[in-house]
Write a protein that binds this DNA or RNA. Structure first.
Lengths: 137, 137
DNA sequence: CTTAGACCTGTGTCTAAGACACAGGTCAAG
DNA sequence: CTTGACCTGTGTCTTAGACACAGGTCTAAG
């Protein structure tokens, strides 16, 4: 299988496959013409990678997991520990986005009733520069 | 003012100040020793940048806004239009994170009751590789 | 057999927003 | 004058691929 075939068969892009290959997560054989040749083993390997990405693991995580399993060890403990970390990070980012969304949405609605102003020497845009202060008041 | 002074006075890092300077958002004078010298105008300019970043504008957005205001025009219409875009993006990412958080959390709790398994030729980790399928069942 | 065109390949570069490393410069104390 | 602490600018690194590009491959027509 060539790179684009593999990618299409699992609904991803050739560039992603190339990226995983560059990192050593996939190890295709070299075809005579220099093209990379992917076997069925690579197909299930890629399937694993995509599942893990979909669950929030980073590519570095996946590399670590694969390394562990290639040593013959069970990767399950590592997997549980990694997802705990990733979930905590996701939770933090989620809260941050929640707060940001609120701020943006309140800014947007407030700004719609405010007039335009020309910039001055020390003010680029009064909408932005007065936003936090108004909030305090 | 030197870069670190400016940064500390507004609670950011010297690297950020250098970054904004590199992009031309800040235009310090050159001191005799080659160091960059920031004036009071730069202080309010940086204050503006930090406020805008805090509201979810990208650095590229901020550059555009500053350019507009340096032409003497009011940046307000641009600011309103940009925040609408950014808010939509944020909303999308927020929904994606919400879904991801749910998936991760359900994976974590399910995996805690599942046993470890050694890898096989076509399976790296059964926790991950069976997750979607179990969900369907 | 040759040629044209369509498609595909690997490699290298680019992204956002800074963080980090590092060689060298500056400054105050001794 | 020198030591050491701190500071500076520049250059490289980060994620997870997307994109550009020169060249290779393959199929169909002549």
């Amino acid at each position: 299988m060539k790179v684009a075939e593999l990618a299409k068969s699992l609904g991803t892009t050739a560039d992603s496959v190339r990226y995983y290959t560059r990192l050593g997560l996939l190890k295709p054989a070299k075809s005579v013409n220099g093209y990379k040749s992917y076997s069925n083993k690579e197909v299930s390997r890629l399937k694993f990678i995509l599942s893990a990405r979909n669950l929030g693991f980073s590519v570095a995580d996946i590399k670590e997991i694969i390394n562990e399993s290639e040593d013959g060890k069970s990767a399950c403990p590592l997997v549980r520990s990694l997802i705990k970390e990733r979930l905590e990070e996701t939770e933090k980012q989620f809260q941050a986005m929640l707060a940001l969304r609120g701020k943006m949405s309140s800014a947007l609605s407030r700004w719609e009733e405010m007039e335009d102003k020309a910039p001055t020497a020390n003010m680029v845009c009064h909408l932005i520069e007065n936003f936090e202060q108004i909030k305090k008041a």
